[in-house]
Design a protein around this nucleic acid. Structure first.
Lengths: 387, 387
DNA sequence: GCTCTTAGTAAGTTTCCGTAACTAATCTAT
DNA sequence: ATAGATTAGTTACGGAAACTTACTAAGAGC
């Protein structure tokens, strides 16, 4: 490591420590949190304040001694934009560094029936509305949440079944329509972005994240880092085999987890229209007369897939999200029973099966958060922009 | 990061780069590999030479220009000791920094029938023999490879079925018998240590390591780092469920991978004595008339477990080791077919299923290597020892 | 009002790395 | 043979970052 990088590293460490603190914190507190000395922290903090990333509050007395000057992430000094593309609507959200919502715009549109170019146009229009609202506020980046697989190299959408997209260079086209924006644009899988929102509530945690939406996706978080894998699909265990030579899955394989707990399969199992809207599915399930059977199937197949994943990863926590969150209380007993029966880690202690902190639109928020990441990773570069 | 740590960091980076180079390398080469400048590297190298961690060779001309001074890891200046405990023998190995074998001692003894205290005595005796042979050579550490589960906090052996051990504080007792050795002593699972040996051949790689011994263990390697997990048994997927409500496993569960491909199960399936020695099992299998069926069962169940693990981890490489290595060629076609059928990652490209570089006693070598790790992690601390 | 305690600042020092220029040793071409 | 090109490694200097020590600031408790 070069000596130049030391400063960048510490600048980032201080900013991250401030974010991790959860609330206002003094320079002395940051020094304790980072292991740096007070003079060093003071110098860096001064720079971060000048750069508009940190704000000072009015001194607060905390018992004996000189009152601390509370520091917090600056609000309203920059924006990071998330854009979520789904089969029936688009949403765009701008957050500031402190995670406050600056602007939000939505547009309803059945994109699944349309050409991808329509989604490009509509997405660009929504982003432009948000940018107009933001005025001259500098933008750190734009991240697009897509319900499909993304090529790790060029950000192409390899496939998004619900959108009926195959090999769509969405980001490239969006950039073209936006006419060379001054900020970086990228795309990521919606499940992987959702987990970032969950990570806010569990900083530095390690857990398996399972999200039920149209399919079943997820992510693996190890020590606060989302595992990437060779192609960026780590944790996508919708196609874990739970029953060898079992039911046919829409992916063409047999016995996949998705074949048992995806929207289509669930709807069929409950005797509902397979195209039932996701939001309605849970309520309909509750009204179905085969409720216990449905819960049993979800719980057992999910439990088996989770147990196998836990055996490989040796994790202690599972977080259920998406349509699994609202029914978490019901399915958890079955899932827990299955996991305890099959997971090795259960021998060392109980496995925690939690419901996601149910913030609305976790993928959208996660996308905006992901757009913020470069600022945290290298605050110096952000502050030096344009120079 | 404090400025003091920068030096340690770079010292370690240089030493690691030297090890990763695989052969002699010049100061200029190290500068290129680490991104540091030549003067910086020269200064650090001087210190490492003084500290006995690096040795200079005689200049070698590489075409035009001044000949390089080849640098290599010092040989015979320090020792790291590995001790392997199995059901029927003990082995002790001392390596120097460059990985050269300094001393090796073995003792045959059916430990499974004895009290753990016998294993402590015999292990200590073997270590003492090795220490005597090493003379005054400084010892970096001792790592014990145990075929069982180790508590991550205090190194207690939680359970080692083949040794019929339960909750044995082997390390603590070994340290007591050795009368407070000057070096650190720790224990680790044998599979996790074996993978370190494999990692020598795949520096910085990411792969799933599957080792068939009495049971079926393994490890997950991500970017050259062995994944720990919450309890230090990540990758131990012998108890992955491959057939729900399938065959009874000795762990009491049903349908575990081990129930299909462990030594006992294999021997039974091939109609052999269930206590057949592991070394003989492969040959006997080859002579068995049910060969195709055995290969089929191993391949399909292993393939399914591997495919599920790959779906969660998104890896591209699987390494077969232990008794799976010699039969790798035979089972690979079946495993590959099963993996390709079920693994999502297979859609992006072929999954490599490799045989481990079959070094004898990978766990023993891995243990000694693990004992070397602290020196690579902080060469400065090692060189400053006793001061 | 005095002392104690904690937050934050200022000045000077140390440590470490980088830059630039140099020497060293070999190969190559004339 | 000898000069020039080329690559390895060293020396001397300068700058950047963080640490140490000592200080000031401001409130709490007696």
């Amino acid at each position: 490591m070069q000596s130049t990088h030391l400063r960048e590293h510490n600048l980032s460490a201080i900013l991250r420590a401030l974010a991790a603190a959860g609330g206002p914190i003094s320079r002395a507190g940051l020094a304790a949190a980072t292991g740096l000395t007070k003079p060093t922290v003071s110098k860096q903090v001064e720079e971060l304040i000048d750069g508009g990333l940190i704000a000072e509050g009015t001194p607060v007395s905390m018992g004996a001694g000189r009152p601390m000057v509370p520091l917090r992430l600056a609000e309203g000094t920059l924006a990071a934009i998330g854009l979520e593309v789904t089969a029936d609507h688009l949403s765009c959200l701008a957050l500031d560094l402190g995670g406050r919502v600056l602007v939000r715009r939505d547009s309803e549109a059945p994109l699944a029936q349309e050409e991808p170019s329509r989604a490009v146009e509509q997405g660009a229009a929504l982003v432009r509305e948000v940018l107009a609202e933001l005025g001259a506020l500098p933008v750190a980046g734009l991240v697009v949440a897509v319900p499909g697989r993304i090529a790790p190299d060029d950000g192409r959408v390899l496939s998004a079944p619900n959108l009926t997209w195959e090999n769509v260079p969405y980001v490239r086209e969006l950039v073209a329509v936006l006419e060379e924006p001054s900020f970086p644009v990228s795309a990521q899988n919606d499940n992987r972005l959702s987990v970032l929102t969950e990570l806010d509530a569990r900083p530095g945690g390690s857990f398996l994240y399972v999200r039920g939406s149209t399919g079943v996706g997820g992510a693996v978080v190890l020590g606060g880092e989302v595992l990437d894998g060779a192609h960026g699909w780590a944790g996508e265990f919708g196609h874990t085999v739970v029953v060898p030579d079992g039911e046919l899955c829409r992916c063409g394989r047999r016995g996949c987890l998705e074949a048992y707990i995806s929207r289509h399969s669930l709807a069929q199992r409950a005797g509902l229209d397979p195209d039932v809207r996701l939001e309605d599915l849970v309520d309909r399930l509750a009204a179905s007369r085969d409720r216990a059977e449905v819960i049993g199937v979800i719980g057992r197949s999910l439990g088996l897939a989770v147990a196998n994943a836990l055996n490989v990863l040796d994790l202690e926590t599972v977080v259920l999200s998406g349509y699994l969150a609202p029914i978490a209380e019901e399915i958890t007993p079955v899932v827990r029973e299955t996991v305890q029966r099959h997971a090795l880690a259960a021998e060392a202690g109980p496995i925690a099966i939690d419901r996601a902190d149910s913030l609305a639109d976790p993928a959208l928020h996660g996308a905006a958060r992901a757009a913020l990441a470069p600022v945290f990773a290298d605050p110096g570069a952000w502050m030096a922009r344009g120079r």
